[in-house]
Design a protein around this nucleic acid. Structure first.
Lengths: 192, 192
DNA sequence: CCTACCGATCGGTAGG
DNA sequence: CCTACCGATCGGTAGG
């Protein structure tokens, strides 16, 4: 869908995602966003209430997407190692499908205002909790080694969450193949 | 060393590290830094030339520290798997020893100005290159599996570089133990 | 969606 | 290290 066919509000969000990624939330002014759209900064306020409303929209809509794909995986009722594999691939697909929104979601959420930021942290914890449960389940079912669940979970997240930094949409690996590779590396390690 | 025994310039750097981590570089004003030190914002300019000079000091002094510890490891002339193990532990120790400066180094370097930023990117590439060579060497010597060297390197870095986010100085694991755990997980994987 | 504008705050300078 | 201040820019509002 070309940007011109979108509603103004969606255009604002799209432009903001790109600028927040490039310059950061604080360093991006309403005038920057307006200029990209060819309108005056004050005109933006006909469509949104405040700058932090834009940020909230970006963060929470991506959070929804993460939960939707993870919920689908959870409902399959497969064994923990397969569940982890699918969860990783899904997560990687959400990130590679939202290369502008992902870094905003990961780094700029800290600038959300008071009620929103607490809700966001709650969602993030809940999401991490699900991954922890998959890993704990795998340990209980003796598929995975006895390891510090917290450390393993954070390592998996950090591997996946730096993807936006180097993933190239036209590279040789598809998002699914990258997820697959990550899974194999996490499961079997580098050692021959 | 208590903060009051430091020279003013070092006090400025130390306070800036903490504020840049908490609020980000752009959102931290010279007045914020001054207030923390109990002086006027304009007085800071007796000790440094500009705000971005503070940022540059933080980024490049940590870069030096990363290179110093990695150089020591390189000079040992040990086998690639042991070299990787020591490189990971060293990197983890630098991060856990600089919990304020590390996130600034990792996220705020993008706000460096023109000549400095290019020098910084050059150093970062050189550092990653050394890790890539260790891994390639391990593959050549048939200690490591045939894998995408780039992907493996980035995964290792991302695992290590999110440490500042959850490492607690008084937690149950020492920096060396965390490095050791990361190494084992990367080398052998999660699978039983 | 625009013009016109507000109070607040920014990095930094002059001069002592 | 301070006072006093500069021009620029910020998020946002009033009124059309």
């Amino acid at each position: 869908m070309a940007i011109v066919t979108l509603k103004r509000k969606d255009q604002i969000t799209l432009v903001a995602q790109s600028l927040f990624k490039k310059k950061g939330y604080q360093a991006t002014s309403m005038r920057d966003i307006a200029e990209e759209l060819g309108i005056q900064a004050s005109s933006i306020y006909s469509h949104i209430k405040s700058k932090d409303e834009i940020l909230a929209n970006i963060c929470f809509s991506l959070a929804d997407e993460f939960f939707d794909t993870l919920d689908e995986v959870q409902q399959l009722g497969v064994f923990p190692d397969e569940r982890l594999r699918l969860a990783i691939i899904s997560h990687v697909q959400v990130i590679t499908g939202n290369l502008n929104a992902a870094p905003v979601f990961l780094h700029e959420w800290q600038y959300l205002k008071k009620p929103a930021i607490n809700r966001f942290i709650g969602l993030r914890n809940k999401y991490e909790q699900i991954f922890q449960e998959i890993i704990q389940d795998g340990i209980d079912k003796q598929v995975f080694k006895e390891m510090d669940v917290h450390l393993v979970t954070l390592m998996i997240f950090s591997s996946m969450n730096w993807l936006y930094d180097w993933y190239k949409p036209n590279g040789k690996l598809s998002p699914e193949e990258i997820g697959e590779n990550l899974y194999v590396l996490i499961l079997n390690g580098l050692m021959k």
